[in-house]
Computed example of a mutant assay.
Amino acid sequence: MTAEGHLIFSVACAIFSKKAELSPELAHGDWWHIIPGALLTSLLPDIDHPKSIIGQRLKWISQPIARLCGHRGFTHSLLAVIAGIMLFRAKMPADWVIPPDVMHAMIIGYLSHILADMLTPAGVPFLWPCRWKFRLPLLNSQKGNQLERVLCLFLVGFAIYWQQGAPIIDSLHLQSLSELLRTITSI
C-alpha cells in the first residue's frame, strides 16, 4: 500500500475506533488529538524500508532495521506494537505526558498500517517471528493505487456516515458480509 493509502486508511480507522468506543480514552477523546495521533504513527511500520517516506528521512534507523529484520518483518507485527507500548510506558519522563487519547490513537494508527498491508497479496507476519503471512488480498499494487485510493476514501466516508452503536452491516443495508466484500471489490 502507498503512503497516501496508509494515511487515508488511518483516518478511517481512527473514526471507526472513536465511534465504536474501542477504549474509554478514544470514546471520550478529542478529535483534534485522535486524528493527528493516528496519522503520526500510520507510516511508522515502514521504518524497516529505507526507500519509504519515513525510511528516507530516518536512514540511520531504517537501514539497520532493514538489515536485521527485512521489510514487513518485526515492525509489521503484534510484537512491535507491544514493544512500542511498553517503551512509551517505561521510558517517558514524568513531566512529558502524552494525553491518553493521543496514545490510544497512535496505537490505532500503527495497527491501521499493519491491517492495510494485510489487504495486499504480500500480507504481513503478524505473529513475527513466526513467518506465517496474514492476508486478505483485496488490493494489488501492480494495478496502481486507484483502487486503493477509492477503497480508503470509501472507508473514511462510511466511517463518517456510520451511526455510533449501529451494526455495520445494518448501516449498509446489506444482507451479508460477502455482499459487502463484493460491493467493495466491484468499485
Rank of each mutant, 00 (worst) to 15 (best):
F16E: 06
K133D: 12
S23Q: 07
D101T: 07
A3I: 02
G157T: 02
F154H: 03
I47K: 03
V102S: 00
S176D: 09
W96Q: 13
P129W: 08
G157H: 03
K59Y: 09
P50N: 01
L40H: 03
P167Y: 02
A166P: 00
H76E: 03
I168A: 07
A66W: 13
M1Q: 03
I114M: 01
D101F: 04
L79E: 05
M86P: 00
H104E: 14
G144S: 09
V156P: 00
V156M: 01
L119N: 01
M103T: 06
F9L: 05
L44F: 12
E25A: 14
R67M: 07
H28A: 13
P99N: 13
K143N: 14
L139P: 00
I61Q: 01
S141D: 13
Q163G: 09
I53F: 11
K19Y: 06
M118P: 01
D170W: 02
I65W: 05
R149T: 11
F88Q: 06
D95N: 14
T2R: 06
L147G: 15
D117Y: 00
D117C: 03
T183D: 04
W32V: 10
Q56E: 14
L180M: 14
H104A: 15
R182L: 12
I82F: 14
I47Y: 02
R131G: 07
L153G: 00
V81K: 09
I108P: 01
S52Q: 09
M1P: 11
D117W: 00
A105Y: 02
W60T: 09
A116L: 05
L26R: 12
S178K: 11
T2F: 02
F9V: 09
L58W: 12
G123D: 11
R135A: 15
Q163A: 07
G73N: 03
L58T: 04
E179W: 01
P50C: 05
W32C: 06
R182D: 15
G157L: 05
L139C: 07
L127G: 01
I8G: 00
S52E: 04
Q164C: 07
R89W: 12
R131M: 07
R182H: 10
L26C: 10
I114H: 01
I54Y: 02
L7M: 13
R72C: 08
A159S: 10
K91I: 08
S10G: 14
W128T: 05
A90V: 07
P64T: 06
A20W: 04
T185P: 01
P24V: 01
G5M: 04
L26E: 12
I108F: 02
T41R: 01
P99Q: 13
P121G: 05
H28I: 02
S52C: 05
P36H: 11
I85R: 00
I65E: 08
H28R: 11
I168M: 12
E179V: 08
W96L: 15
A14N: 11
A12D: 04
L43C: 08
S23V: 14
S178T: 15
L147K: 14
L151V: 13
W31I: 14
P167N: 10
A12M: 03
V156L: 03
I61G: 00
I168C: 06
G37E: 10
